[in-house]
Structure formats: structure tokens, C-alpha cells
Amino acid sequence: MTDLAGIKKEPIVIADHLALDMLNTVAIVDKQQADFWQTDEDVVYWLKTVAGIKLRSYQSFKQGEILETARELREVIRKLVVKKKADSLNSIKPIEPFLDASLSWISLQKNAEGQWHQHRCYKQDTVKQVFGPITEAAAALLAEVDFNLVRVCEHDECILWFLDRTKTHKRRWCSMALCGNRHKVAKHRKQKAQ
């Protein structure tokens, strides 16, 4: 894997699904696979900015525990998604410890307009509990989503996943601005050369 020292580590949020955005924390950078999670702080930043999870305190966990658990869950989800995509998912056993750890409840809160709305709260006593919302999103992805719409970007040098929520369901690229544009430029150059 590529060392990301000096590379801006802003999360890639293009998947239209939280569990797939987690998979996209591994991407191709300079033609090599790179992991955007190198420290607990990288994971905590991703949890806050992408998943909307505010940790009450992560200093109570052992150093490296959040990173290790995040990477473990990410690989569990990746393997399950790949198997589901290949129509060979026969067991969800690898994610069960994360599902078992996820403890949540509903609370009611007033919004700015004074109307009541539901808010799901999660325990954060263990590191696995911290990842409860992502684990539940992964379970929903596996159980409820049409996997014909779960795709990997078609660009040769991209491994990013996405859920195609377009009206026509013909999305091919992780992002038109990134890989879609690269494809158009390459196609134009090829036509020009001919």
C-alpha cells in the first residue's frame, strides 16, 4: 500500500451509502492501493464527517484499537459485499459480532421548528459499539438493496464502490468529475489519434 504522508486525507464520499463509503477509505492513489486510515484520529475524523458519529471519548480505548476495529469491520463488509455481488453470500457470520455489539435505542427530540422527531442513539462503551451505525447500514445494504445497483467504478485504475441511485440506473463511474472525465479525455485522445 502507498504511504499517504503529505497527501490530503479528506474522506471520499461518493458512494450514496454509508457502508460503501467505508469501503472507499481504501482507494488507488498514484496507481497504488492506499489506505486513508493510518491512525485512530483518521478514523475518528471519518466517523464524525462521514458517518455523523460523535465519539463521547475515545481516549478511554487503547491506542490503535479504533483503527484496528475500523479496518476489521471494513474488511468484513468488503468480503460480504463482494460475495453478495457475486451471488454467493451464504453466511453473515463475520459481521455477527459487530451486530451483537450494536446497542441502540430511539429518543425523541424537538427540532429547531419545535417539532418532535426520532433520533437513534448508540452505546459507545466498547469500540465495536462505536461502529454500530455503520454495522446497521451494512446489514441494511446486504438485506434490502438491489445489488444490481451496487457497483465498482468502471475505470481501470479505480476500486471505489457506489450505489447507483440515478433515475436510469446507468451510472458507471465513482464520479463524473474524476473517473468519468478521465475516460472522456482518454476516448477523445484515442479518436484524435485516429
Rank of each mutant, 00 (worst) to 15 (best):
K8D: 15
E10H: 12
I12G: 00
V13Q: 13
I14N: 11
A15N: 04
D16H: 14
H17N: 15
A19E: 04
L20N: 01
L20A: 07
D21Q: 04
M22W: 09
L23T: 02
N24E: 10
T25G: 00
T25I: 05
V29A: 13
K31T: 12
Q33K: 15
F36G: 00
Q38A: 11
V43A: 07
L47E: 05
T49N: 13
V50C: 10
I53E: 04
I53V: 15
R56V: 13
Q59I: 08
E65Y: 00
L73F: 09
R74N: 02
R78T: 12
L80A: 05
V81W: 07
V81L: 12
V82L: 15
K83A: 14
K83D: 13
K85G: 06
S88R: 14
S91Q: 05
S91L: 03
I92G: 05
I92H: 04
K93W: 02
I95E: 01
P97Q: 07
D100K: 15
S102Y: 04
L103P: 00
L108E: 04
L108Y: 12
N111D: 15
G114M: 11
G114F: 08
G114H: 07
W116L: 14
H119K: 15
H119C: 12
R120A: 09
Y122R: 08
Y122H: 14
K123D: 13
Q124R: 08
D125F: 09
D125C: 06
D125P: 02
T126C: 06
Q129S: 09
Q129N: 06
Q129V: 06
V130C: 11
G132F: 08
I134M: 09
A138Y: 02
A138S: 10
A143M: 15
D146G: 02
F147P: 00
V152C: 08
V152S: 03
C153H: 03
E154W: 00
D156M: 12
E157W: 03
C158E: 04
C158P: 06
C158F: 07
W161D: 00
R165D: 04
R165M: 10
T166K: 03
K167W: 05
K167I: 07
H169Y: 07
H169F: 05
H169R: 13
K170Q: 12
R172W: 01
C174D: 04
S175G: 04
M176V: 02
C179R: 05
G180C: 09
N181K: 12
N181G: 01
R182M: 10
H183E: 13
A186H: 06
A186F: 02
A186N: 12
R189N: 09
K192C: 00
K192A: 13
K192Q: 13
